[in-house]
Each structure stands twice: as C-alpha cells, then as structure tokens.
Amino acid sequence: MNKIISKALVEKVSKISMMMAEDATERYLNFFGRFPKLANRIPLSYLASYLGITQSSLSRIRRSTSGK
C-alpha cells in the first residue's frame, strides 16, 4: 500500500512541478495535445481551473491558438 501511495504522490508532484514551469499557453497546448477531444467537451471553467488560469485567460489563449 505504501508503494502505491508513494508512486501516486511522486506522479502528482511531477505533474504539478512540470505545469508550474510552463506558461499558460504551453499548459493549454500540452493538454490539448494529449486530450484533443476532451478539451472541447468540458466546460471552460473546469479546464481553466485544471490549468491554473482564469476563464478569460483561457478564452484568450484558445482564440490566439485556434489557427495553429
């Protein structure tokens, strides 16, 4: 049980530290790259919260990256 918990904690810390090293646009593009169908199906408020940004910032990022 301790090994499972330790592995989950390491993965969580790794994910958070990796996200904190990226700017908001990179976080969105990485999320969109991993989950392209999901990014357009969940509410913006949930996605913005997951990415650690505001809804207005997410809308701005989506608008600016829509041509990419």
Rank of each mutant, 00 (worst) to 15 (best):
R62M: 15
L47M: 05
S17P: 00
A48I: 01
K37M: 07
R41A: 05
E26V: 15
T65I: 15
S59F: 01
A21D: 10
T25A: 13
R27A: 03
L58Q: 03
K68Y: 12
Y50I: 14
D23M: 07
T54W: 04
Q55M: 11
N30M: 05
K15Q: 15
E26L: 11
E22W: 10
N2Y: 12
E22Y: 13
L51I: 03
L51D: 02
I53R: 00
K68H: 04
M19D: 15
N30V: 06
F32I: 07
K12Q: 14
M20H: 09
S57F: 02
A48V: 00
S14V: 07
N40R: 12
R41M: 11
M19W: 06
N40M: 09
K37D: 14
K7Y: 08
R63V: 04
L29R: 14
G33D: 15
L38K: 11
S6C: 04
I53A: 01
S14K: 13
S56A: 12
E22D: 12
P43A: 04
L47D: 06
Y46I: 04
I4E: 13
G67H: 13
F31Q: 06
P43C: 10
A8D: 07
S14H: 09
Y28Q: 04
R60P: 03
I4F: 08
T65W: 09
S56E: 15
L47S: 04
L51K: 03
G67M: 12
T25G: 00
S64T: 13
S66Q: 15
N40P: 00
S14N: 04
R41C: 09
S57M: 12
R34N: 14
Y50A: 06
S64E: 06
Q55D: 12
M20V: 00
G52M: 02
D23T: 10
T65H: 09
Y50R: 02
V10T: 08
E26H: 08
L9P: 00
P43D: 02
N40C: 03
T25I: 10
F31S: 07
L58W: 06
I42A: 01
L38G: 14
F31I: 08
L51H: 05
I53F: 00
M1H: 10
S17Q: 14
M18T: 15
A48F: 02
R62A: 08
L47I: 02
A48T: 00
I16P: 01
E11T: 05
K68W: 09
N40K: 14
S59G: 12
Y46V: 11
D23H: 09
A8K: 14
K68R: 10
A8H: 15
N30L: 10
S6P: 06
R60H: 05
V10W: 05
F35E: 14
T25W: 07
A21Y: 10
F31V: 00
K3F: 04
A8L: 13
E26S: 14
S49C: 01
A21H: 08
R34T: 11
K37V: 12
S14F: 09
L47K: 04
R34W: 03
E22I: 05
T54Y: 03
Y28K: 08
F35Q: 03
